[in-house]
């Protein structure tokens, strides 16, 4: 079964979109290098701000006919075909595909809230095309909303990017609680929290080092820790150039750190999600 990873954290600016898009590209390239027959990865952008869509395709003016919005508004029978029509190729790699977000998603959310079956409008069609992909990566917006719920329901695995600063303020236990909230609060007991990524780590800041040591020593969080991404200006430069970090600067410290995360996730995929 194809695994789909939702990148989630109700806080904005923690590196969800950066992690989701770069990890997706890394997976494609690593799978291809490992001679996988199917190295394709699909990004689903559920954030109406469309950052992931913008940086991977160069545009974010997707709308009524060519975005996630279109899929959510399609009738049940046509939704899979609509989904196939709306998926587009990224500019980063021919095997990296994306279902783009749209500013119209905000309206869709208002319209669909309370409609029976609405939370399943993403997972239903996605499950029918999932086997075309080696993995699916879902980017979410920084809030709990119907769209985030759809994203979580369409996922098999959740990955939580956190900033040290955030860990500092809320504390480690609260992170675990948050993760459990996701599972129980969203009535999705099979969703597996399979990773924590510490982003924007600055080793010059003593507090950061201290927190990281604590995370590593923690019986649960230590196991979940997928990687630590240093704060690195290459990330924001790549971002503003609509480029992947790997293309922009493969030797940057953040590139190396992300590639380690990619390798763990690909290994997880190859083992069939164990």
């Amino acid at each position: 079964m194809t695994r789909s990873f939702v990148f989630t954290n109700h806080k904005g600016g923690v590196g969800k979109s950066t992690s989701a898009t770069n990890i997706a590209l890394g997976m494609v390239q690593l799978l291809r290098r490992a001679n996988a027959t199917n190295p394709r990865v699909l990004i689903i952008d559920t954030d109406s701000q469309g950052h992931a869509s913008l940086i991977t395709t160069g545009r974010k003016n997707y709308g009524a006919d060519d975005s996630l919005y279109t899929v959510l508004m399609a009738d049940r029978t046509n939704a899979p075909q609509t989904l196939l029509n709306c998926i587009t190729q990224s500019q980063w790699d021919p095997d990296l595909h994306i279902l783009p977000a749209s500013p119209m998603l905000e309206g869709a959310e208002r319209e669909l809230t309370g409609v029976a079956g609405a939370p399943y409008r993403l997972v239903d069609p996605v499950s029918k095309i999932a086997n075309q992909y080696a993995a699916i990566i879902i980017d979410t917006r920084p809030s709990f909303s119907l769209l985030t719920e759809m994203g979580l329901l369409a996922a098999t695995d959740a990955i939580v990017p956190v900033e040290p600063r955030y860990l500092e303020t809320v504390g480690l236990t609260s992170v675990i609680e948050k993760i459990n909230d996701i599972r129980e609060g969203w009535r999705h007991p099979t969703l597996r929290v399979s990773g924590l990524i510490v982003t924007k780590m600055d080793s010059r800041i003593r507090g950061h080092n201290h927190l990281l040591a604590e995370v590593k020593a923690h019986p649960v969080l230590g196991k979940l820790l997928l990687g630590v991404i240093p704060a690195n200006e290459a990330v924001s430069y790549a971002h503003s150039n609509h480029q992947s970090l790997f293309t922009y600067n493969p030797t940057a410290s953040a590139s190396k750190a992300y590639m380690q995360v990619v390798a763990s996730l690909v290994r997880y995929l190859l083992k069939g999600g164990e």
Binding site: L30, A34, Y248, N249, P250, T251, S255, M259, R267
Partner: peptide, 28 residues
């Protein structure tokens, strides 16, 4: 834009060697 494929290759290579060893035959 930096299209240094050699350096990207090196980066991929740095994580593939151990990965390929573990690679089950099912994906290729």
């Amino acid at each position: 834009p930096n299209h240094d494929t050699q350096r990207m290759d090196d980066l991929l290579a740095s994580v593939t060697s151990d990965l390929l060893g573990e690679l089950p035959q099912n994906l290729n």
